[in-house]
């Protein structure tokens, strides 16, 4: 469904200079500057990413509401975006995110073993966080690293052609 019109700009009548931190505001502003002035909402995805990163990897309703204020958006439009894209988390997360690609090329090269290994060794199912809060295990769809299968996205870094042992080493190095 696409609304064939300008964004439904809302003046929330809140002081934007009290939201987030000066650094985050500056970073969001840089994104806002990329788009036509009436399309502040184009910055919603990078804004969600920035705010999520600064909040331990997940988004609260209050944070989404603040983004709505900052970008003159209806809160609902922010919720829709935050729930549509897979990289936003609306539940508390572990200190790290271990995202194992489960799509076809990685599956053919052993991603199932990786997942089973982590499940058994660390006692987490995909979507769950280890008891010590160290990491959240995620099964993700194709990471676009098919020639280096199986691939794992650990926080912001790709790790490729991983065996269970190699993945263990990576996890061991996590704080």
């Amino acid at each position: 469904m696409s609304f064939r019109n300008l964004p439904l700009a809302i003046d929330h009548e809140r002081d934007k200079s009290t939201l987030f931190t000066p650094e985050i505001r500056a970073a969001i502003d840089k994104h806002i500057a990329k788009y036509p002035s009436e399309w502040r909402q184009s910055a919603v995805m990078p804004a969600l990413t920035l705010v999520q990163d600064a909040n331990g990897g997940w988004l609260t309703q209050a944070l989404m509401d603040d983004i709505a204020v900052y970008l003159d958006m209806p809160p609902m439009s922010v919720y829709e975006v935050a729930t549509f894209y897979g990289m936003y988390d609306l539940e508390p997360q572990g200190r790290h995110k271990v995202c194992v690609c489960n799509s076809i090329s990685c599956m053919l090269q052993g991603s199932e073993e990786l997942i089973e290994h982590v499940e058994h060794k660390y006692g987490v199912k995909p979507g769950e966080t280890t008891a010590d809060g160290r990491f959240t295990l995620k099964e993700v769809e194709c990471l676009g690293a098919c020639r280096d299968a199986p691939a794992v996205l650990l926080d912001k870094t790709y790790h490729e052609k991983l065996s269970p042992d190699a993945l263990d080493k990576l996890i061991d190095d996590l704080e």
Partner: peptide
Amino acid sequence: YSHMGAGAYICGEETALLESIEGKKGQPR
């Protein structure tokens, strides 16, 4: 300019991609 996605295969569909740049769900037109 660059515009970052956030995990949705469908945004590879060109009109979903446009919607996404417009700050919406990536639903094709």
